[in-house]
């Protein structure tokens, strides 16, 4: 299994695309820092602002997760992969793990570079406002849950389709319309809206005195819904991947 993950990592990190994404992430932070240079800003405040760049990481997560299976079909290499003495379940799981590792890598990279760039541009002075290291890390924690669900969903789409382009586009459309759907559903206070995945992905709604998306939602409820979706996505992708006749 470790070998398989190693393989997936090799295929991921030897692609130029992967490093362009990493480079862009750092570049955006530097541009941010230039714009904010003359304001009164602390390095922690910068790290806090940078934590919202995780929406870019979400895009990378979608691109990577939704192409990691489908691209093997697009390129025909899936044939070479599945004729080994390794079960399809293991192959699929190794791909999923390598997606999660990549997302973790991006999150940690984003956090560390925001510290470094923050120090360089704004110095080590502590700010007067109430941003602490804890709030920054909390932000990352909440985002990780969103990213996990987004990636798992995109990964399922990836296992369902043979074209990586179609898979990426579909995942994107669903991802970007999901927040609008949540908004519309909550405007009309549609009762079943609380069972919608994207009503539950942002657990921040239960903290900092925020309002929940729908009435009657609790933290336990959301965690339960997230687990159900998580298991469902994995079940669907595994079923589709194991059942499929490979005809590419």
């Amino acid at each position: 299994m470790l070998n398989l993950v190693q393989n997936e990592n090799m295929k991921l990190y030897l692609r130029i695309r992967t490093w362009i994404m990493v480079g862009l992430l750092v570049l955006i932070q530097i541009i941010f820092a230039f714009f904010l240079e003359n304001t009164v800003f602390s390095w922690l405040a910068f790290a806090d602002v940078s934590s919202y760049l995780t929406s870019i990481i979400a895009i990378y997560a979608i691109v990577t997760a939704s192409s990691i299976v489908a691209s093997e079909f697009s390129s025909g290499t899936i044939k070479m992969l599945l004729i080994r003495p390794v079960s399809r379940t293991k192959i699929l799981m190794s791909k999923y793990i390598s997606v999660l590792l990549y997302i973790s890598f991006l999150l940690i990279l984003n956090l560390l570079t925001s510290f470094i760039i923050g120090f360089i541009f704004f110095g080590s002075a502590s700010a007067s406002n109430d941003i602490t290291l804890g709030t920054v890390l909390q932000n990352y924690g909440f985002t990780s849950i969103e990213l996990l669900m987004t990636a798992t969903f995109a990964f399922m789409i990836s296992s369902l389709f043979r074209s990586s382009v179609l898979s990426i586009i579909l995942s994107f459309i669903i991802h970007f319309f999901s927040s609008t759907v949540v908004l519309v559903l909550s405007q009309f206070n549609y009762t079943y809206g609380k069972f919608f995945l994207y009503s539950n992905t942002d657990l921040r709604q239960y903290f900092y005195g925020n309002q929940t998306n729908f009435e009657g939602m609790t933290l336990t409820f959301s965690i339960f819904i997230l687990i159900v979706y998580f298991v469902l996505f994995h079940f669907v992708s595994l079923y589709a991947f194991k059942k499929r006749d490979v005809v590419v």
Partner: peptide, 19 residues
Amino acid sequence: EMYKFLSGYQNLVHYARMI
């Protein structure tokens, strides 16, 4: 169908790791 963005050697290493 091999991974075109990998070298021939890396392709072989890839398959070798699976057994």
